Computed example of a mutant assay.
Amino acid sequence: MQKITTCLWFDGQAEEAMNHYTSIFKNSRVLSVMRWPKGHADEGKVLVTTFELDGVPFQALNGGPQYKFTEAISLSIDCKAQAEVDHFWTRLTEGGGEPGPCGWLKDKFGVSWQVVPEQLPRLLQDPDRAKAGRVMDAMMKMGKIEIDKLEAAAKG
């Protein structure tokens, strides 16, 4: 059992978010849906869900409108190829999500994500600092990261 689980605070969309996320990531599943008990003002409505995204546990809480998501915390997705970057970028921005700069986006619930091809950190950490600088400059001009453009920048 993992000691730390990310809990995401929603305003009534916990179940919708869980179902959306588990439809996007392979090896994902719903673990539980806890509803308010009989006699409570919100009887039958979802309180907390638990689920896994590619084997990583999450909770979604319907906590109310007091708190909103910000870019101060984001979920980062490591991608092996452009097709994976494209898949996550498309699915997470659909339905009202917002593309952002440098591989960042907000989904329709306001959760911030980073969609990162595995080539990006390797190229940015290249010992050839001029090469790394060209890659950084290319990345700074992108929304969704495009691997072929990063590699072209690395070559100069």
Rank of each mutant, 00 (worst) to 15 (best):
S23E: 10
N62Y: 09
V85M: 08
L123F: 05
P37S: 06
V56H: 12
L120C: 12
G63P: 09
G133A: 10
D128L: 03
G12Q: 05
S74V: 00
K108H: 06
E84S: 04
W36F: 15
L31N: 15
T90W: 00
L123I: 07
S32A: 15
E98K: 15
M142F: 01
T70R: 00
K144Y: 06
A154Y: 03
H40W: 01
E16Y: 00
A60K: 01
Q114C: 03
Y21A: 03
L92C: 09
F10T: 03
V48T: 14
A60D: 08
L47G: 09
G103Y: 11
H40M: 10
H40K: 09
V111M: 13
M140K: 06
Q119E: 12
A81I: 03
Q66E: 14
Y21S: 00
L105V: 13
G133T: 02
Y67W: 12
I147R: 05
P101Y: 03
P57H: 05
S76F: 13
A138T: 10
D86N: 13
L120T: 14
K80R: 11
V111D: 03
E151Q: 14
A153V: 07
A138P: 04
A153I: 02
I77M: 00
W36D: 03
A138L: 06
I77T: 04
L150H: 11
M139K: 00
G96H: 10
P101W: 03
I145N: 04
E84Q: 12
A83C: 02
E52G: 00
N19M: 11
M1R: 09
A72K: 11
Q114S: 08
A154V: 10
V116P: 00
E15F: 08
F51W: 06
G97R: 05
L124F: 12
D148T: 14
S28A: 14
V116T: 15
Q125S: 15
M139P: 00
W89E: 08
C7R: 04
D137Q: 15
P101R: 14
G44S: 05
A60R: 01
L61W: 12
D86E: 09
G95P: 03
G143M: 08
V85K: 02
M18F: 05
C79V: 05
A83W: 03
V48K: 00
G103S: 04
A152S: 13
R134E: 13
L120R: 09
A83K: 13
M142V: 08
E118R: 11
M139E: 01
G96F: 07
G63R: 08
T70M: 07
T5S: 13
A41E: 15
V135E: 01
V30E: 09
T90R: 12
E98L: 14
G12K: 01
G96D: 10
E98M: 13
D11N: 15
S112Q: 11
D42Q: 14
R91P: 01
L31K: 13
